[in-house]
Amino acid sequence: MEWVILLERWLHFLAGITWIGLLYYFNFVQVPALAAAAADTGGPGGAAITKYVAPRALLWFRWAAVVTWLAGAALLGSRFVPAMTLQGENAIIGLGAWLGTIMLLIVWGIIWPNQKKILGIKPATDEEKAKARRTALLASRTNLMLSIPMLFFMAASAHGAGLFLN
C-alpha cells in the first residue's frame, strides 16, 4: 500500500511540475515574448510561436492539470472529504486542494475555450479574438496568483503543519 501512495505522490509531482511549469512559461516567457515580437516592426514576428509552440504547450498544460488533480485526489484517499470540507488539520491540505481545483476549472473552463479562438481552432472574428486574448491573459494571471498560496499549502501540509497547531 505504501508503494501505491508513493507512486501517486510521484505522479502528482511529475504532472504538477509539468502543469505549473508550463503556467510559469506562459506568464514569464511566452506572453512577454509575443508582446515583444508584435512591437518589433521588421522582426520575425510571433507567428511561429503561435503556430508551433503554443498548441503543444497548451496540450501538455491542460492534460497535466487533469493528471495532477486525479493523482492528488487519489493521494488524499480517505482524507479527500475531510480535506475538501476543511475539517481540523485537514484544512491545510484542503486549502491547497481547493486552490488547485479552482485552477483546474479555470484551465478547462476559461483558458482553453478562449485559446481555441486565439489559435484558430475554433472560428472567431478579430473582435472575438481580441476579447478572448484579454480573458485568457487575466485567467492565466489569476492561476499564476493562485499558484503561490496553492504551493504554500501543499508544502505546509507535509512540512509545516505544526506551525498551524496552537
Binding site: G88, E89, A91, I92, R141, L144, P149, F164, L165
Partner: peptide
C-alpha cells in the same frame, strides 16, 4: 484603479497577500 494582474509583479504581490490572508484563515480553522 489599475488591475494588479496586468503586471507580473502585481500578480506575484497579489499571490503573496492572498497567501497571508489564507494563512490567517487556516490558523483560525486548525
Amino acid at each position: 484603479m489599475k488591475n494588479p494582474l496586468d503586471s507580473i509583479l502585481g500578480t506575484i504581490i497579489s499571490g503573496l497577500v492572498l497567501t497571508a490572508v489564507l494563512v490567517v484563515i487556516a490558523n483560525s480553522i486548525v
